[in-house]
Design a protein around this nucleic acid. Sequence first.
DNA 1: ATTGACAGTTCTATTTTAGAACTATAGACG
DNA 2: CGTCTATAGTTCTAAAATAGAACTGTCAAT
Lengths: 157, 157
Amino acid sequence: MRWDTLEEEQCSLARTVAVIGDRWSLLILRECFLRVRRFEEFQSRLGITRHLLADRLKKFVRYGVLRRARYQESPARYEYILTQRGLDLYPVVMSIVHWGDTHMVDERGRPLLHQHKNCGKLFDPVMICSECGEPVHAKQVHTHPGPGAAKTAQASG
Amino acid sequence: MRWDTLEEEQCSLARTVAVIGDRWSLLILRECFLRVRRFEEFQSRLGITRHLLADRLKKFVRYGVLRRARYQESPARYEYILTQRGLDLYPVVMSIVHWGDTHMVDERGRPLLHQHKNCGKLFDPVMICSECGEPVHAKQVHTHPGPGAAKTAQASG
DNA sequence: ATTGACAGTTCTATTTTAGAACTATAGACG
DNA sequence: CGTCTATAGTTCTAAAATAGAACTGTCAAT
């Protein structure tokens, strides 16, 4: 398997991994959700090399996760803003953060707390079933091939 | 930033990314949730090089995501089984799959459908607030420094 | 005695990433 | 006018990670 064919796989996980499945992409995405938008700010907060940052931002724009918006004329300056497609990655980011909060914190506790504006409380994300509303756990799920499944027996998810 | 210090960052996302934040790790994890447990089966399903597979499995064992269990004596043979810590990564995997199902499918549709055994229906994962039970979206969340926050202003999530 | 299954390890070539320097535009400073 | 700073990149070489293939060791079956 080559990485440039990853997005062509018959697997929604593999295709998403083609977009966000490397370390810098996920860290850049974190910054996006913390309202960072500009090249210099991404670079200085993350310590990423400018080369890679430019590459990853281009990739996100290409996949429609970010859009490049001019915020100033002469000299033209651009910032990177989450699209709806990018905002839809929020559950991915939050579930990653939540696993870290649960399993990777040190004795000092969580680095960041999340407040739900709607109810005002500090919260954790919970994954529920869209149909019955109950929390879903790995062992309660059966998978079946869907319409886009590969013909041959193949890993998909 | 060097990758070996990623897990020491004051950020639950960065620490989790140290565990699962590369392409092969996420694909291996997918296979784990599809009940794959053995070296040869991971290798043949994924096409990953044996070198990297051995490396990633060791890393998962080191982080407590998988445990290496002997399933046969003479010759000793081992398989890799999700721990509770590993099972807790299910929301991460499902949210990635769901984003792919929403934004990356081709005209044939989803490769895989998910059935919730409890209610019997095909479902999508939905992220809700643990406190009020309502779906949570990016723009409805405020973040605050927690007890484990770095002293200096720093990106965390 | 040979083959095959299984779970790795070891080796070299290629690709990716790190780290630093460089480019370009334009306003502010003196 | 000439220099400095801010911003958003691009280009270059060195180091690290990954790809791809071959090899190791144990034991059962033929």
